[in-house]
Amino acid sequence: MGAIKNKDTKEEFCLAKALWKRCYRYRIHDKTVFGTHDLSFKKYKIAIFVDGKFFH
């Protein structure tokens, strides 16, 4: 599972778009934050991981 490098999925894009509409500013795949998260909010110290349909 660690070899799967899937980024910019449909689910991730929909979540990011919804958050942006609600004026939440985030970074996508930010290399300065530890881990392999999809979205991050440095100000609030929050990282969001979006698991797509592939893993379920």
Rank of each mutant, 00 (worst) to 15 (best):
H56K: 11
F34E: 12
R27Y: 04
Y44I: 04
K5H: 10
V33N: 00
K5S: 11
R27G: 01
A3C: 09
M1G: 11
K45T: 05
I46E: 02
F41Y: 15
N6F: 09
A3I: 07
H29P: 02
K42M: 04
Y26I: 08
N6D: 08
H37D: 01
K43Q: 06
E11M: 02
A47S: 14
A16N: 08
L39F: 14
A16P: 01
D38M: 08
F55P: 00
L19R: 07
R27Q: 01
T32M: 06
L19D: 03
K5G: 10
A3S: 13
G52Y: 00
G35F: 03
K45H: 09
E12D: 02
Y26G: 00
C14Y: 12
R25M: 07
R27K: 12
A16H: 08
K10Y: 14
D8S: 05
E12F: 07
L39Y: 05
F41I: 05
F49V: 08
Y26D: 00
D38E: 14
C14L: 13
R25G: 04
I48C: 06
M1P: 03
R22T: 08
K31M: 06
H29L: 02
F41D: 08
T36S: 10
Y26Q: 00
F34G: 01
I28W: 06
V50Y: 08
H56N: 13
H37Y: 11
K43L: 04
D8T: 01
H37Q: 02
A3D: 06
D38S: 12
K31E: 13
Y26L: 15
D8E: 03
D51R: 08
V50N: 09
N6Q: 14
F55T: 11
A16S: 11
T9F: 08
Y44L: 14
W20Q: 07
D8R: 10
E11T: 11
D38T: 10
K45M: 08
Y26N: 03
F34K: 15
F34H: 10
F54P: 01
T9P: 03
F34P: 06
T36G: 07
S40V: 15
D8Y: 11
N6R: 15
F55C: 04
A16Q: 06
M1K: 04
F54V: 13
G35E: 05
E11N: 11
F41K: 03
R27S: 02
K7P: 00
T36R: 14
K10T: 14
R27M: 00
D51S: 09
N6W: 05
M1E: 07
Y26S: 01
D8Q: 05
H29Q: 15
K42R: 15
Y44T: 01
R22S: 12
F54Q: 12
V33M: 12
F13T: 14
T32W: 03
A3M: 02
S40M: 01
I48E: 03
T32I: 07
V33H: 00
V50F: 10
V33C: 09
T36V: 06
T32S: 15
A18V: 04
F41Q: 03
W20H: 13
K10G: 05
C23F: 12
Y24L: 14
Y44K: 13
V50M: 10
C23K: 15
M1Q: 05
W20S: 10
K5V: 10
K53V: 13
